[in-house]
Amino acid sequence: MAKILSIVERAYHGTVEEQDDTILWISHMIKDAGADISVLLRGNAVNYGVIGQDASGLRFGNVTLDVPPTLDADISNLIAAQVPTYVVREDLADRGISEAGLAKGLKVVGRSELADLYDSHDSIWHW
C-alpha cells in the first residue's frame, strides 16, 4: 500500500460550521478506511496542535452551537489512531508558539527535513 502524506496548511476556515477541520477529518477517515497515511501540519495549521483551544459558547439568536470544534483533541485522536502527525518547527516559531504547549505525540520537524519526509512517502496530498 502506498504511503500517503496529507499536508494541512489552511486553518480556521469554516471550522465552526463544520465542527472540525475538513482536511484533518478526511485524513482520519482515510486512515479508518485502511490507508497508510501521515499528516503534516504547516503554515497556520500548526496552531491546530496547540492544547487548550476553546470554541464553545456561540449563539446566533435563539440557535446555540452545542457541539463546537475541538481541534486539539482531533490532533490527539489522529495520533492515537496511529497516524504519524508532524508539525513544522519554524512555522511554530514564526507564530510565537511554544513547543511545550503542543499535543503529546506530535512530531516536530524542521523545514530542512521536509524533503526527506516527502521522500519517505509515495504520494503527497497537499490540500
Partner: peptide, 21 residues
Amino acid sequence: VKGTTIEEAKHPTTANFVAGL
C-alpha cells in the same frame, strides 16, 4: 471520526444559524 450519531453530533447548518437570527 468521532463516533457520534446524528443526534449527538448536532451538526450546525448555516441555514439554521440564519433562521435563529
